[in-house]
Design a protein around this nucleic acid. Sequence first.
DNA 1: TCGTGACGCACC
DNA 2: AAACGGTGCGTCACGA
Length: 606
Amino acid sequence: MRQLQYKLKTEPIRINIVETDDDLDGFIEFVRNNQTIAFDTETTGLLIYANTFKIRVAQFSNASESWVIPVERSVKWSWLAANALLRAKQLIIQNAAFDIPVVVRHWGLDMRELFEKTIDTKILAKLVDSRSVDAGGTGDSLEDLTAHYIDKTTAAEIKGLATAEAKRLKIKKDEYFTKVSIRDHNYLLYAGMDPILTYRLWKILGKLVPSSARQLIGFEHEVQRVCTEVSHRGYLLDLAYAKKLSSKLRATETRNVNVARSYGIENVNSDAEVIDALRYYGWFNIPVSEKGNESVNGDLLQALQGSGYKDLAKLGKAIQEATRARKWRNTWVDTFIHTADAEGYCHPSINTLQARTGRMSITGIPAQTLPAGEASIRLCFLAEEGHVSLSTDYQAQELRVLAALSQDPVMLDAFKRGLDLHQVTADAAGVTRKAGKGTNFAVVFGGGVNAIVTQFGVERTDAEKTYKAFKETYLGVAAYSRRLSNQAKRQGYIVTPSGRKLLIDPDRPYSATNAAVQSTARDVTCRGLLRLDKEGFTPYIRLPIHDEIVFSVPAEHEEYAARRTNELMQEEMAGLMISTEAEAMGRSWGSLYEDPDSNRKYVLDS
DNA sequence: TCGTGACGCACC
DNA sequence: AAACGGTGCGTCACGA
């Protein structure tokens, strides 16, 4: 058997590499003697559901001894590794949302069984400090956490490994994990070290989770399990439609690129070229970015179209349409086509605790950033055969949460009476609903008059008037914001009602209100998600998106599903109902967005 | 040839 | 007195 040594600071680490069947006895004994085991895999990439995806190595560790099983070399070894997972009483994994679906898909293990005995160090780390490294926090990757909690040198070696090794082996970095020899010393050494570090992080982080947040540990693991099940099941792609849309977008791009070319612009994405051309045609009003660079943006292209100069208008429109068509194709449609699995399902990656407020992020199907109120992209996704799409979302979720948290009597009363809060704010200032709405949102975001003007396009005098009226009308919100802001100043953090500790930047204490609202709103959605799960809805969930959950439900039960998802998702918070609305239509997700008046079948308020 | 910063643009 | 919160992704430009 091959053994490697590593020195973690001063402590010797032993890494055992299985090379022949004779080496397995030691591994079996290790599994028998260690009820709690840290687990990790090395794979050929990150796209778990791609045809070419393979598990290369499986690693099992305690604090100082690691077993590396090159499962790629033997079905029997894969089987033994799978069995080790079944035998373990407790698994410690860094980012179980990756490794568990990997072994479920490739070794046929049961997802729920694995999640139920897993502690994810990434979840623990997020509950200790949810900030990214850029924001002054610990980050949540194994490397960043190792650097912060264990040892900087080790972290640097791991972080630099793939780059350095790719260079040494004269291959691209992306190819390293696929092409490196399964017997490569460094590859095996660092594969062996990963679960050692994970195990040690578990020991350290377990003690650091604040007492207020301890109740969230179980909750967050449940949320992760449900979301990983959703991701694992995937969302059915309408491949024929997607391909048609892709060529349509390509045609639009080509047509408009040719127009731009006739004005001397080869690359519509190059700001420098576009600006040169505009100057040539007599347009000198070029926006300047925050860093002082001239740049092309939507406002400029819009201004050209309204300029009254035929050529400039034509050029502005062409550039806008070309770049949009290209972006839509690259970002959405072609990505869906290329990442769909063999059965035609796309698998969103759901990071249940991505943002510092705890908000989720969804990549793969970047569901959170699809064009709003626009059907064509969502028409790529279908409910199952015989099913329809159902979307249930919270109504004015963040504003209701703000009302509940602040207990502002005017806001609470307005919601309880079913009034339109944007109009209530507008009326208090005698301005348009648009100004009222902008002000409501700006305040939730922690902004002031400037935010209302620049973000929501409100006249400055109206913005000033409405902002003032907001403060005078919702005295409870103002008091709540002061309270939170003072707390953040005094102790550097706030604690949300669920017990989540949110560290607030000392130079931005006013952001505490937004942090509390955003984080609590996220908790509302996640609690709803768990109630849905408990009642067996998980197989029908396709995507959670901030304040909304998208389902595929059997057509004959759509009315029941609409009613029941409403009942399960809504919840009362400090006397105010955070209510929902369910909407069902055709088979495609996009059908919820097209022709809303004529085709809508069910719209049920909670 | 890569990784990264800056930017714009999608969203809640 | 005033304060723009949280994300992901594609592209270009630039420097190692």
